[in-house]
């Protein structure tokens, strides 16, 4: 029951989050922009369409969307939103979550290579480049967080806690990594229509119809999970334990509001900076790594 609720929450809200970011971005650029519900319409449209599959593709290409969606959904179950009576509370920690997201990426990258298109290969190569350089910063941030909480357990991290300098710096490092992982400006650009500048989009260029819908949904889910983790660190909230309706309502409202705040920050950032050249992304992630080191030092000093 808890599992189904949590799945429903993530599947239900994550497209909205993407729609919201896109809406805010457009409004900041003085455009009207699409409806915040556009991602839902897109998913519905893609799900009712038939597919075109490349003649070069093997079973890897056909299997990938299911592995990707399953890894994103599993990761969303590890995040402690509703932890009372959650049977998966012992299944994995922060590190396991990162490894599970890597499973989806591994297959997505293979699928990019599978269709013999140079765009797919280019996207795959760049995706692995960005994600492997993001790893050290990500782990240092988690390291600093775990120094503060005494363990990498996500249950510990999502408890009510007081903020400290180390947590804020660690969360900023995590935020930069999240920008890279969710293919946001300045690392990647979700809105681009030029294959040569795409990273994530180039990789999934050959997908269409229902399989594309699954991949898009996974990307929304991954984004929401990462935002949730950052939000959980900067805006601490007690896990869901409310009994009556009003309490549950306020809990849910605050739960969503803080994720949307992260989304707001992302959208402001996206309209105010330009996309970097691919090899500048290494410097960008290097900066995140330095932030990670600062976070660890802060944690050692106890601030």
């Amino acid at each position: 029951m808890t599992i189904l609720l949590q799945l429903a929450l993530f599947i239900g809200v994550s497209p909205f989050l993407s729609g919201l970011i896109s809406k805010i971005k457009n409004n900041l650029r003085m455009r009207r922009g699409m409806s915040v519900f556009q991602p839902y319409y897109n998913l519905a449209k893609l799900f009712s369409k038939s597919e075109v599959i490349s003649e070069n593709a093997s079973w890897i290409f056909k299997l990938t969307p299911f592995v990707v969606i399953s890894s994103a959904l599993t990761a969303s179950l590890l995040v402690p939103v509703i932890i009372f009576s959650n049977p998966l509370v012992n299944a994995g920690d922060f590190l396991a979550l990162i490894f599970i997201l890597a499973l989806g990426r591994f297959f997505l990258v293979l699928a990019g290579l599978d269709t013999a298109s140079s765009f797919g290969g280019m996207g795959s190569s760049r995706e692995m480049f960005i994600s492997s350089l993001a790893e050290p910063a990500l782990y240092l941030a988690v390291f600093a967080i775990s120094l503060r909480f005494g363990s990498t357990s996500l249950v510990e991290v999502s408890q009510m806690h007081t903020l400290s300098a180390s947590l804020i710096v660690a969360a900023s490092a995590l935020f930069l990594v999240t920008l890279a992982e969710t293919s946001r400006i300045p690392v990647d650009n979700q809105e681009t229509h030029l294959e040569l500048t795409m990273i994530h989009e180039a990789m999934v260029l050959e997908y269409s119809g229902k399989r594309l819908a699954l991949i898009e949904l996974s990307a929304y889910l991954k984004q929401m999970i990462l935002f949730f983790l950052i939000a959980g660190i900067i805006f601490p909230i007690a896990p869901f334990g409310a009994v009556n309706f009003t309490q549950s309502f306020f809990w849910l409202a605050w739960f969503l509001a803080r994720i949307f705040i992260i989304g707001l920050i992302v959208s402001v950032l996206e309209v105010s900076v330009a996309k970097m050249r691919l090899f500048r992304a290494a410097d960008f992630l290097g900066f995140a790594f330095v932030l990670g080191i600062v976070a660890v030092i802060c944690a050692i000093l106890g601030v």
């Binding site: 299911f66 399953s70 998966l88 299944a91 994995g92 396991a96």
Partner: peptide, 20 residues
């Protein structure tokens, strides 16, 4: 110290169920 958990069979099960 504070406990940390990992259960690969549970993860494998969840992955398989959600994938299917």
């Amino acid at each position: 110290g504070k406990s940390v958990y990992l259960s690969t069979p549970q993860l494998a099960l969840v992955l398989a169920v959600l994938g299917s």
